[in-house]
Design a protein around this nucleic acid. Structure first.
Length: 883
RNA sequence: GGGCGCAUAGCUCAGCGGUAGAGCGCUUGCCUUACAAGCAAGAUGUCACUGGUUCGAUCCCAGUUGUGCCCACCA
């Protein structure tokens, strides 16, 4: 783009009293930061717990301190910001509470990586120093997120910023833990858990990501040591676990192995023999129908072991290194796997090998290491009654899920939830408030209780799953367990807006904890679920993908408003949101268009002062735009109530650009030129329309609207002004009249374009509007169509149909007969087609008998329109001079 | 293996039992005194396929194919 408008000579007329402070292009970067700091300094985002206003509360899904905000955050933040800004304008005590999550395992991993670069481990530092180091890290990097939120324009209450490791929130964690422990909902048990051999901690079931990996499936012959009849083939993808086998299981009805039941067979590579047991879990159709049982290293095997009283033999340590005595001791699990297979092969015990064998393997969602199921003593939440309550709250309608289809996913989870492993063998997080005494005594402490003194008492070294504290977020952030004013005023919150990817991690847990700790009051009444942000070809955006975009880059290039508007435009409920740079540019263009339209209004003395003129003083265009304006207010409100952000964005863009800017503003130019009372009225109406429009747009694009609204109205800030209300004013007649005008102008423009007439070329012409509803718009039409008063020597006539009549346009000069014939013929063809279709339809008895009246009537109208069009077009064709 | 969803213009997506829509892109003509980040006009679709219901199906039903996501889990 080499062209730069500022370098062109300014050809504006002398009447253009352009405000010197309003350049022809909107420059977001120059104003956004200043505006934001002003909003914060004035305290407009701060909610008052003592106010009489009705509260409206959203707590932010706390971003992890580990990262920076990506477009997904920008997306959700924009929607939450829009919701809370609108409610604030509507007169609610609107609170959007910000904060961050300590993100236990994720953050610990980051800091450990940092240490590794220094050649150190967390063990080198020791627990206390390591935790101190993580706090430093949090101070340093947490600020980046806050800066991004400011840049985006998030209207959050910074005085209420929270962090899940804050003292107050930690008290909440300990209080809930103690209460649940006393209620028997938290217990300690030794079970198979998902163990990450790299993070060296247990993780919960949903922190495991399954993916298809290429492995191997080897079939091993067990038994057969003394007699030929006791051998059985089992298959495994984890051959190393055979060292811990304590049985072979077969289906109880499987006749092939009936003779082996109760007998012991030799376990290869060991000096042990193991029993053959019968268990329903075994699928006789799968493989050989016999399965090796390793209770200490597989969840299903553990269950079989429990049913048959089998011993659980641990053969690997926490790093996945073989501990079983023998030739494989000290080998890593994957080395051991190939060594063991090789050894078995040598002994002739391998009956089949399938390689590669693609199967689903669990990985640590944090570091992608292959999970090792491991028998371990951990703390658990017994979720039964909590999950039941969480499901019921949605089932009985106390909590609504948007879009409703997503509730199936929620129910699927809460109705089948297994107990939740909450202890983590990490250092960063809330320490489990349990102490063990010298005599095996166990004591769970509340926040105000002193740790037991005396020899031999030690605290449990583990910390809680990070989602334990985020599950308390809707009330812990408001001061619970203290009965604070905030809690009384703002709990329960109104809407939870978050991605559908954390329904299980976070949403369900907040439901459980909220209902449990807050006496059955759910933490929010609406769950609004969003999709993921994708690139402009629908591909998933992730940090590892090259398509990943830092929202800051786009905000710097095009403004925060442009990014925000693009995101809301794509926000269909629950659906993924594609975004591309071209679309952000288009939104930037929209912001600039608003800027310039307002600039035009200011140059022409649009005003917001004083009451609107009486209806009797309003012209048809004024009544039309005010009618439309109020319809749009109602429409936007409806879309907000349904969380239809894409629809409300479209409605506003369409109204602003296609109606206000392209028509009302253009028509007003003629009015202003003529002057007098109509011009005064129009200035006031234009001011009104822009005032309301800017307020409607503000929650989506806060910066440009703030700049313009304060300039236009002289008001202090659009942030604290009122949300527009539908006055109820509608004028159907005016809307129809303007629609007719638009049709007429468009039709003439089309005629001109087909004729190859230059748009700027003033054409001598006669407009015959007598008796037409458009008579009063003649000046405007001449302006829009660039027609001069009558010239001389008319040669040709164009007769243009519009709703309710015909516009006769006589052009001087020689028109292009071929072009005109082509145009008329084309129109004639489509009119004839229309006639055929409607006639056929009206000749259909079934249609006449069963179709609703208004449909039949509509078809009749279409047919008669087609008939008259054909007659007129035919006549015009006949009138054309032959070449 | 179970569940949910999707298939509409070149791209990304709305829509919907009664003449197919938007944004971007594309074509043509324009700096028309708010804006070239703009204005005007225009082109483009067997609404995945096959059946069924209906006076009428892009829309409802069944099946097919393709595709996405979630859950379970494969010894």
């Amino acid at each position: 783009m080499t062209e730069n408008s500022s370098q062109r000579p300014d050809s504006r007329g002398p009447n253009a009293a352009a405000p010197a402070d309003l350049p022809t292009q909107y420059a977001p970067a120059e104003v956004e930061e200043e505006l934001y700091e002003r909003w914060v300094a004035r305290g407009w985002f701060e909610a008052d717990a003592k106010s009489d206003k009705q509260p409206y509360t959203i707590v932010i899904p706390p971003p992890n301190v580990t990262g920076s905000l990506h477009l997904g955050h920008a997306f959700q933040h924009t929607l939450m910001d829009a919701l809370t800004r609108r409610k604030r304008m509507q007169g609610y005590e609107s609170l959007w509470l910000p904060g961050m999550d300590h993100a236990g395992i994720a953050t610990q991993n980051k800091v450990e990586q940092q240490l590794a670069e220094e050649g150190k481990s967390r063990q080198d530092l020791g627990r206390e120093a390591f935790v101190e180091r993580v706090w430093q890290w949090k101070e340093e990097y947490g600020g980046k997120i806050l800066g991004q939120m400011r840049r985006l324009g998030d209207g959050v209450d910074w005085t209420r910023e929270r962090f899940t490791m804050d003292e107050g929130l930690s008290r909440a964690v300990q209080t809930v833990f103690k209460q649940m422990y006393d209620d028997g909902l938290i217990y300690r048990a030794e079970r198979i858990i998902n163990w990450c051999p790299r993070c060296l901690t247990a993780i919960s079931d949903i922190e495991v990501e399954y993916q298809e990996d290429d492995g191997e499936l080897v079939s091993i012959r067990y038994g057969g040591g003394d007699g030929e009849d006791d051998s059985v083939v089992v298959a495994t993808t984890r051959a190393e676990t055979m060292l811990g086998d304590t049985a072979v299981a077969v289906h109880p009805d499987d006749q092939r192995y009936a003779h082996l039941l109760g007998r012991h067979i030799k376990l290869p590579l060991t000096d042990r023999t193991i029993p053959v047991v019968a268990d329903e879990h075994v699928d006789p159709e799968f493989g050989s129908g016999a399965v090796k049982v390793t209770p200490a290293h597989d969840p299903n095997d553990f269950a079989i072991g429990q049913r048959h009283g089998l011993p659980a033999l641990t053969v690997m340590d926490e790093r996945g290194v073989i501990t079983a005595h023998g030739p494989f001791e000290g080998l890593d699990r994957f080395e051991a796997r190939s060594s063991i297979v090789a050894a078995l092969r040598e002994q002739g015990r391998i009956t089949a090998e399938k390689r590669p064998y693609t199967h689903s393997v669990g990985h640590c969602s944090r570091c992608k290491t292959t999970i090792e199921p491991r028998l371990s003593m951990q703390w658990w939440v017994g979720v039964g009654p909590l999950a039941q309550a969480a499901g019921d709250a949605v089932r009985d309608g106390r909590v609504k899920i948007h879009p409703a289809e997503m509730s199936a996913r929620y129910f699927d989870w809460v109705d089948n939830m297994l107990d939740w492993c909450i202890s983590r063998q990490l250092w960063w997080g809330h320490r489990i408030p349990v102490w063990y005494g010298p005599d095996g005594e166990v004591r769970c402490l509340g926040p105000d209780e002193q740790p037991p003194t005396g020899e031999g008492w030690t605290q449990d070294p583990d910390v809680l799953d990070t989602w334990f504290s985020s599950g308390l977020w809707p009330f812990s952030t408001l001061g619970w367990p203290e009965q604070t004013q905030d809690l009384a005023k703002f709990y329960p919150t109104d809407v939870l807006l978050t991605g559908h990817d954390i329904i299980f991690f976070w949403v369900a847990r907040m439901m459980m904890f909220g209902l449990y700790a807050m006496d059955g009051t759910a933490p929010f009444h609406t769950i609004a679920l969003t999709g993921l942000v994708r690139d402009d070809h629908g591909k998933k955006m992730s940090k590892s993908n090259p398509n990943s975009v830092d929202p800051l880059d786009w905000m710097n290039a095009y403004g925060a408003d442009a990014v925000r508007f693009t995101l809301t435009s794509g926000a269909n409920p629950g659906a993924d949101v594609p975004i591309g740079e071209d679309w952000v540019k288009a939104s930037r263009n929209f912001a600039n268009k608003i800027w310039n339209a307002t600039r035009f209004a200011l140059m022409n003395g649009a005003t917001v002062q004083g009451p609107l003129p009486q209806a009797s003083e309003l012209g048809a265009t004024d009544r039309w735009i005010l009618s439309r304006l109020n319809s749009v207010v109602a429409e936007v409100d409806g879309h907000y109530d349904d969380y239809q952000f894409a629809k409300l964005s479209d409605a506003l863009r369409h109204f602003a650009w296609d109606e206000v800017f392209d028509w009302y503003v253009e028509l007003s130019k003629t009015t202003f030129a003529v002057g007098g009372r109509p011009a005064e009225v129009s200035r006031r109406v234009l001011g009104e329309v822009l005032d309301v429009m800017l307020r409607l747009l503000h929650p989506l694009v806060p910066f440009v609207t703030e700049s313009l609204w304060t300039t236009l109205t002289g008001g202090e800030s659009v942030v604290v002004t009122s949300w527009p209300a539908d006055s109820g004013f509608r004028d159907v007649a005016a809307e129809q009249e303007i629609a007719t005008l638009q049709d007429a102008v468009t039709e003439v423009r089309r005629f001109r374009a087909d004729q190859g007439l230059q748009p700027g070329q003033r054409v001598p012409a006669r407009l015959s509007l007598t008796g037409s509803p458009l008579a009063s718009h003649e000046d405007a039409m001449r302006q829009l169509l660039r027609l001069q008063p009558e010239g001389e020597g008319f040669h040709a006539t164009a007769s243009l149909p519009v709703a309710g009549g015909t516009v006769e346009l006589d052009l001087s000069g020689v028109i292009d007969v071929d072009a005109e014939r082509k145009r008329l013929t084309k129109d004639l063809d489509s009119a004839e087609k229309e006639l055929r279709q409607t006639t056929a339809k009206l000749g259909n008895e079934g249609f006449l008998a069963k179709a609703p009246d208004h449909v039949v009537e509509k078809i009749r109208e279409r047919r008669s329109t087609a008939e008259s069009d054909i007659a007129r077009l035919q006549q015009q064709l006949d009138r054309l001079p032959t070449a």
